[in-house]
């Protein structure tokens, strides 16, 4: 399995935020996205996950192969840790949450309401959700925020195991996780309207 992104361009608010993005990630490797804030890392990940429409280019395979972890975890404070995970698992047709609990060291917290967890524990719960989606491609947006050193190592191990089972990952992070794979440095794009006004009458306000 291989993730192939070719000539991807994304327009937001009438402005191109991504242009000419090309990369390949093959099975068992991870791609790390780097670049200053506001350069489009989140937009790229959301586009891969199918939450943002691409204006040009192609992503293969489609969103149904992707699991996406954003800044917000989507877990409910009044539900327990295992209830939260069971919910996401059954949405994705997965029965077993014990592996996810073990990999992210959440077993002792299983019955605690998610609202009573610390920030780092909540983050771990959000990341554990990825393990119950049963999907091959994991997309992470700054996954290590509010994680301590041990938890970062825990996370890196979980991703490494996923890669070892033939999965792949795209991770926007500034921390060196020591994963097998390449680094993609996102640079600034030209913030200009399309060149030819007459051809493109959708964006021709300028």
């Amino acid at each position: 399995m291989e993730l192939i992104v070719s000539d991807l361009a994304v327009v937001r608010g009438g402005m191109r935020v991504l242009e000419g993005v090309n990369f390949r990630v093959s099975s068992g490797t991870a791609l790390v996205l780097r670049g200053p804030n506001g350069i489009g890392k989140t937009t790229l990940l959301r586009t891969l996950a199918g939450l943002q429409l691409a204006d040009e280019g192609a992503v293969a395979p489609g969103p149904e192969a992707m699991a996406y972890a954003s800044h917000a975890d989507g877990n409910k404070g009044t539900l327990s840790v295992s209830e939260n995970l069971e919910f996401w698992a059954s949405l994705h047709g997965v029965d077993d949450i014990s592996v996810a609990l073990r990999e992210f060291n959440m077993e002792a917290l299983e019955a605690r309401p998610a609202g009573s967890l610390s920030a780092g524990q909540k983050r771990r719960l959000g990341l554990a959700r990825m393990a119950v989606t049963g999907r091959r491609i994991w997309l992470f947006d700054e996954p290590t925020v509010s994680l301590d050193v041990d938890s970062v190592a825990l996370f890196a191990d979980a991703v490494r195991r996923h890669l070892g089972q033939g999965g792949l990952a795209v991770i926007a992070t500034h921390i060196d996780l020591g994963l097998e794979g390449e680094v993609l440095q996102l640079g600034p794009f030209k913030a200009e309207a399309p060149e030819d006004h007459h051809e493109d009458f959708h964006e021709a306000f300028l």
């Binding site: 199918g50 917000a72 989507g74 949405l91």
Partner: peptide, 16 residues
């Protein structure tokens, strides 16, 4: 509520 905590976005990526 689901929009604020990001659950709606994750529901959009789920297979339903």
């Amino acid at each position: 509520l689901d929009y604020e905590d990001g659950a709606l976005e994750l529901l959009a990526t789920a297979p339903i």
